[in-house]
Nucleic acid binder design. Sequence first.
DNA 1: CGCGAGTTCCTGACCTTGGC
DNA 2: GCCAAGGTCAGGAACTCGCG
Length: 253
Amino acid sequence: MFKVLLVDPNCRSAETIKKLFNWNDLGFILEDHAETSSRAVDLFNMENYSLVIINITELKDKGIQLCEILRKGSLIPILLIGGPKDFLIIRKALNLQVNDYLPAPVQSDELRTCLLLIKQNLKRYSLIKNPEQLSNAVYIQSEDIIGQVKKYVAESLDESLSKRITLKEISVMLNYNCSYLGQKFKYQEKMTFNDYLLKQRMERAKHLLENTNMKIYEVANEVGYVELDWFYKKFKSYTGVNANKYRELATSK
DNA sequence: CGCGAGTTCCTGACCTTGGC
DNA sequence: GCCAAGGTCAGGAACTCGCG
């Protein structure tokens, strides 16, 4: 479990964030809430957090100061929440290597995706409070980068978030150029990222068709296809038969 | 190794058709 | 009416190429 510190002067919005979903299900514990940046610093020094979420709309420049303080002695992931009017402040924060930014009001699926990305990184490296560990982490990252991409795809499929899988998103998460990561993936795996993603989705769809009574549209949705028609096309081109025919053949064996 | 520009191709959206 | 299946097209994501 990764411990989260929420910094938000607005108790109502803090409560809303807490209740967006069950944080424990995603592997996070959100119990601590600081209403001021000074209280946040106190808590940060006392507890061992894995993530800090800051409502920049409410804190403004104090939020930036808080980012500066956290960054001085730590590489802890920082997630900002702010509105369209906070552009200048967010721009400042980006210079402090803030990990991500979500527009307010936060949507549950957006935050969930963001947390999964952060969790991927946290699982990979335990670089919470020691900047010296970053160089080691980056070294590991570049060595096993494709492994991380594949792992992310697999976990996203498991958690039914496959429709959100994009190479662009993964490249941002891993601090790589999108085109470079695509090249690297193809070189190592002898197939493009899209081909790999398609293969994983289709194999999962085949498994679901063989072992469950789910409707075709449910299977399509489960493996990440929003549009059923596109799933039909891809499935047929991958397997050579229609989804229904495939189930018929598989279950008659 | 890493990035940017241009090109290719995938995806989502909308529609139609046919079978049950 | 519901579900399965296919056609078309615009926009965006992924890929390729070339360069530093």
